[in-house]
Design a binder for these strands. Structure first.
Length: 787
RNA sequence: GGGCUCGUGGUCUAGCGGUUAUGACGUCUGCCUUACACGCAGGAGGCCGAGAGUUCGAAUCUCUCCGAGCCCACCA
């Protein structure tokens, strides 16, 4: 045992708290460098840490718990003897930071000069980032902050661009014009995965269409009357006996007086609305399919600003969708073609970021082909282990439905698409990868030539950026230094672990898997840890709009990061959702205070040099065997990275076996109320040894307190350089005594209570034969009158 | 409509075929006991969602139903 503790002392406060942690945080900053060792004989363990998105307050306790979980895994891996690569990055591209900047400076992005806007956004990001790093550090994240990366750095963006260029060369990228999900609020195309649906109140308008052949009317129900002028057909279900006689006839669109065919189609449901549907470009995804299938002519009547075009007639031109809807209803009512209007709840596609309805608009965008990659991913899926196996299905389900990925965005703060277009013929010019290109600002590399017409001047740079998932989907390549440091790459790729939240399986997990698979012919990781959601105390999702987001900062200030972490570990099984509960966090703090008090006791009675196992008293041998059993169980849990099981086992042993029974049994002996020097030393040694061992077990979960105790009692070096303890004791006969001992102690306590005796009063009671080995400790503990 | 989870004392949670169901928080009672009153000890509180089946035996396996949550796909 190292007996020269540092100047670190146990805190004098009565409870474990934040200020006791701050000193440790400082100590780590100055003395502990948890870096990936190179060279190293240990096996590598590389973690694809999710780069947190810097979008401003409030921060989310769920995110704090998530990073705590990831840190526990990193620390467990170190404890198990791995050489851990634990990077930390900041995801800084994309729409949220643009919105934040617009709000902060009260400006409009698209009306601000681009260079100026980017500068403001960068400044805003730097402030947010500093705050976030502060939070991560105060949580005790043992990541490599010295090499913090940013997805908007030149180096990172150069990687995003060069991986795009590689995909282009492989023929996996194409430019396509197809109806895309367009968000007017964000002014850009978004991917299917970025849409969420919500049931919103809407009006179902029943319109009377006259047939061209006769005066008969057909009633058409629509939630999108403003799209009337884009109507290209009406469909009815052929099995719908009320309406199938209309099939083959033509109807006249009110207001516009244009004829459209009435067509039979299965997708029209007889039991909704009137049974007749107008097919418009584009009301919903079904319209897109119908236009394709029925080869209808599309009319695009909404422009990129979300306003109706002049094709819709004088009175509607220039109106935004919502107003146009009201106006057109009024116009139709004037003409007496509105049969009735129903209030309904309509499942509306919304942009996940701006929460505004999206429209389907044909736009020219870049797409990454996913069909082949999905097939390859499906092939290799069995090589990928999900620590929480139930989550694998989410990925599989999504793979079945995912379409080609639209990767271009009409935004400013993102990685620029590294493409110029020939000023003469429009052919795309793609540069060589490896550098960071800014086409909206700079000309293409010197010597660029159009491969189609040979033109070598007047190139036009693309003004678009990539979807931010294009950046974050290569995080595994960035941190393992793909095409930059072959030695590190060979050691760390594929990475051991991708930890992430369940809500981004469809995006980050899926996109990363297919992109890295495409570029490296390997899956980027061996294991996936999908973490659950942090819900509020009523089990509801926390969201800024509901206002129920709990900020972790005051929680950490109040209870300490270790209490927060212990709670995060012990609250629910790996990957399950958990409810935020301040009262439980305070319960975790009580446990840590208990641990602190055990340490104060151990320090007070003093500790001695190592004593051979054979020299120890039976009680001491007993607790060491129990401790050994705990070590085995915790090691087994830690090998599955199951901090939930481990934390609960550690708490149970520490409190209910070690403190309540063992310490009470040996307290007198440890204080020296015994004239046998050997037995006194035996107790002191065992107390110290058990606590020492427990601190190592606890260190991945609550690193502050375990290191504070470690440094105060045992060593001048941090606990985090330790390996997993192996006691190598195997007197398993002592394990049989545990239950009997606890039962006997309980029985004595009950007797004393029944007889209104205080715990230190004498009592006459006989000690069972099976416990005779522990007799002297039991007599001292309960003050038993030896019969 | 399809799929995936999940229903265990007031709350949360473990157990997932075998003696009186785990632990935490809360609650009640007593107690300043040479670490800790943010403590110690003791107690109350559960037909393990409902029903049926498999089995010598079910919280645990199967089916049906009820309820909750999440995801996906159509609703004009």
């Amino acid at each position: 045992m190292e007996t020269s503790p540092t100047k670190m002392q146990l805190p004098s406060d009565k409870t474990w708290n934040r200020s006791a942690e701050s000193e440790i945080e400082k100590f780590w900053d100055e003395n502990v460098k948890l870096k990936f060792e190179s060279p190293s004989t240990k096996p590598s363990f590389a973690i694809d840490t999710p780069p947190p998105y810097t979008s401003g307050k409030p921060w989310h306790v769920g995110a704090a718990a998530h990073y705590s979980h990831i840190d526990m895994i990193a620390r467990i891996a170190r404890l198990l003897g791995y050489n851990v690569l634990f990077p930390v990055g900041m995801d800084r591209n994309g729409i949220p930071i643009e919105r934040y900047t617009e709000k902060k400076y009260n400006i409009s992005m698209k009306r601000t000069e681009r260079g100026k806007f980017l500068e403001l956004a960068k400044g805003a990001l730097d402030e947010l980032e500093a705050e976030m790093i502060g939070i991560l550090k105060s949580l005790g994240l043992s990541a490599d902050f010295q090499n913090l990366y940013r997805t908007d750095s030149e180096k990172y963006r150069a990687l995003t661009q060069s991986t795009f260029i590689e995909e282009w060369k492989r023929g996996n990228v194409y430019i396509g014009t197809r109806p895309s999900n367009y968000c007017y609020a964000c002014g850009t195309t978004i991917a299917d995965a970025e849409i969420e649906y919500e049931d919103l109140p809407s009006k179902l308008v029943y319109l009377k269409f006259r047939l061209s052949e006769s005066d008969t009317r057909i009633i058409v129900a629509t939630t999108r009357p403003e799209l009337l002028s884009a109507c290209s057909a009406i469909i009815v279900n052929p099995k719908d006996e009320r309406l199938n006689s209309f099939i083959g006839k033509n109807a006249v669109i009110p207001l516009y007086l244009r004829e459209v065919p009435i067509i039979g189609h299965e997708s029209a449901r007889a039991d909704f609305g009137s049974g007749a549907v107008m097919v418009c470009s584009y009301g919903d995804y079904n319209d897109v399919l119908l236009f394709k299938e029925l080869k209808l002519k599309e009319r695009i009547i909404i422009d990129q600003n979300g306003r109706l075009t002049k094709d819709t007639g004088e009175e509607l031109t220039g109106l935004p969708v919502g107003e146009a809807r009201k106006k057109v209803i009024a116009l139709l009512q004037e003409q007496d073609v509105v049969d009735k209007i129903e209030d309904i709840k309509h499942r509306t596609p919304l942009c996940e970021r701006s929460k505004t309805p999206i429209e389907l608009l044909p736009l020219e965008e870049y797409y990454l082909k996913t069909a082949d990659l999905k097939a390859r991913l499906a092939d290799q899926l069995r090589e990928l282990t999900f620590l929480t196996s139930k989550h694998k299905q989410i990925l599989i389900d999504w793979m079945e439905t995912a379409l080609d990925w639209p990767i271009s965005r009409r935004r400013f703060y993102g990685t620029e698409i590294p493409v110029w277009y020939c000023g003469k013929c429009g052919e795309p010019i793609i540069p060589e990868g490896g550098k960071y290109y800014v086409p909206w600002r700079d000309p293409p590399p010197a010597g660029s030539k159009c491969i189609a017409c040979g033109n070598s001047e007047n190139f036009i740079g693309d003004i678009r950026t990539f979807d931010t998932w294009m950046d974050s989907s290569v995080s595994a390549l960035f941190v393992t230094k793909y095409k930059e440091d072959d030695v590190l790459y060979a050691k760390t790729y594929p990475m051991m672990l991708r930890p992430q939240g369940v809500e981004i399986v469809r995006t980050w997990l899926f996109y990363s898997a297919i992109r890295c698979l495409s570029l490296t012919d390997q899956l980027p990781w061996k294991n996936i840890f999908i973490d659950g959601h942090g819900l509020d105390e009523h089990g509801e999702k926390m969201s800024k709009s509901k206002g129920n987001v709990v900020d972790p900062i005051p929680i950490i200030e109040k209870y300490g990061a270790d209490a927060f972490r212990f709670w995060a570990a012990s609250e629910s099984s790996m990957g399950s959702n958990y409810l935020f509960s301040e009262i439980k966090i305070s319960g975790a703090e009580k446990f840590l205070t208990k641990v602190l008090n055990i340490a104060k006791f151990v320090k007070e009675v003093g500790y001695t040099d190592k004593i051979a196992y054979g020299e120890l008293t039976p009680t001491d041998k007993w607790i060491l065997n129990e401790l050994n059993r705990l070590n085995e169980k915790v090691e087994e849990a830690y090998r599955r990275f199951d901090f939930f099981a481990a934390s609960n086992m550690i708490r149970d042993f520490t409190w209910n076996v070690f403190a309540s029974n063992y310490i009470e049994m040996v307290k007198n002996r440890a204080y020296g109320n015994n004239n046998k020097e050997r037995e006194v030393k035996s107790a002191r040694y065992t107390l110290s040894e058990t606590l020492r061992n427990l601190m190592i077990l606890l260190s991945p979960i609550s690193p502050f307190i375990s290191d504070r105790i470690w440094l105060s009692l045992y060593s001048k070096d941090s606990i985090h350089a330790r390996e997993f303890p192996h006691l190598k004791v195997s007197d398993s006969k002592y394990l049989e005594s545990t239950e009997r001992l606890i039962e006997f102690n309980s029985m004595v306590w009950r007797e004393k209570r029944k007889n209104k005796l205080s715990l230190r009063d004498k009592i006459t009671i006989s000690i069972p034969e099976e416990l005779r080995e522990f007799k002297s400790d039991l007599i001292a503990m309960h003050n038993i009158n030896a019969p």
